[in-house]
Amino acid sequence: MLLKDVVEEIAEKAPNYLSPASIVRKVTQVRDRLIRQSGGAQQQAETVCTGIDMKAGQAQYILPCPPGNVVDVDILWHGRWRRIPLRQFHQASSKPYYYVQSGMIGLVPAPDRDEAGGIKIFHLPVLPPLTLGSFMEPTGFDPDYDMVLVYGVLREITTGKEAQENDAKYQQLLSDYQTANSGLESYAVDERW
């Protein structure tokens, strides 16, 4: 679906009038929240890598995405790439780790040498906000599951029984989306003896 189709679906089902700009803003919020909640297989499929130059003695670097979008962090440690875990800052440790604070990523211990592109941050892409100017473009969400966006917005703008019905529909569509994108397949084997 194009953004205009999602907006039209919401406008048809909404109990009150909402301006197209308000609907687009809400669609952006729901889309971004859903992308951050994606499962492991979806994260692996959608992940981009941003390289950052490591500087000797510099522990903190500007994060290229919101903290919730970070999937993995690797550093060049003594000539080899090493995946490092997320921990709370200021923990005593002889092994390297990273922490996130105020939009910055921090490394412990601080690097002891300069390395061009020595930090790799694997993260979910940061999509630009949807606008009225992008009506004829895709939403940036899985095109097979754009109705998740529709009901994600409807459950936020309705009340009472209608909100419950919209939430139930949203939860069902979200479950279908997550199952389709989990990367896990399950098989049932029926045996007869």
Score class of each variant (00 low, 15 high):
1 M>Q: 09
1 M>R: 07
1 M>V: 11
3 L>C: 04
5 D>A: 11
5 D>W: 01
6 V>H: 02
6 V>G: 03
7 V>C: 06
9 E>Y: 07
9 E>G: 06
10 I>R: 01
11 A>H: 06
12 E>D: 15
12 E>P: 00
12 E>C: 06
14 A>V: 04
14 A>H: 04
15 P>K: 13
16 N>Y: 09
16 N>F: 09
17 Y>L: 12
18 L>S: 07
19 S>F: 07
19 S>P: 10
23 I>Q: 05
25 R>Q: 07
25 R>V: 06
26 K>G: 00
26 K>Q: 02
26 K>E: 02
27 V>L: 05
30 V>N: 00
31 R>P: 01
31 R>M: 00
32 D>T: 10
33 R>W: 06
37 Q>C: 08
38 S>P: 01
39 G>E: 07
42 Q>P: 00
42 Q>N: 06
42 Q>H: 01
42 Q>I: 10
46 E>N: 09
47 T>V: 14
49 C>G: 03
51 G>P: 00
51 G>V: 07
52 I>T: 13
52 I>C: 06
55 K>L: 15
55 K>S: 08
55 K>Q: 13
57 G>T: 12
58 Q>Y: 09
60 Q>T: 11
60 Q>D: 03
61 Y>M: 13
61 Y>T: 04
62 I>S: 14
65 C>M: 10
67 P>C: 05
69 N>T: 04
72 D>F: 01
76 L>I: 13
79 G>L: 08
81 W>M: 04
81 W>G: 07
83 R>K: 13
85 P>S: 14
86 L>D: 15
88 Q>K: 15
88 Q>N: 15
91 Q>P: 05
94 S>H: 11
96 P>Q: 15
97 Y>D: 12
98 Y>G: 01
100 V>P: 00
102 S>Q: 13
106 G>M: 08
108 V>I: 11
109 P>K: 10
111 P>Y: 03
111 P>S: 09
117 G>L: 06
120 K>H: 09
121 I>L: 06
124 L>T: 01
125 P>C: 08
126 V>Q: 11
130 L>T: 04
130 L>D: 00
133 G>Y: 02
133 G>P: 03
133 G>R: 10
134 S>Y: 02
136 M>E: 12
136 M>Y: 10
144 D>V: 11
144 D>K: 09
145 Y>V: 08
148 V>P: 00
149 L>D: 03
150 V>R: 01
161 K>F: 08
164 Q>L: 13
167 D>N: 15
170 Y>M: 05
170 Y>A: 09
171 Q>T: 07
173 L>M: 11
174 L>P: 00
175 S>T: 14
177 Y>C: 03
179 T>L: 13
180 A>Q: 11
180 A>R: 07
180 A>V: 14
181 N>K: 12
181 N>L: 12
181 N>D: 07
183 G>N: 03
183 G>T: 12
184 L>Q: 14
185 E>T: 13
187 Y>K: 01
188 A>Y: 10
191 E>Q: 08
193 W>I: 08
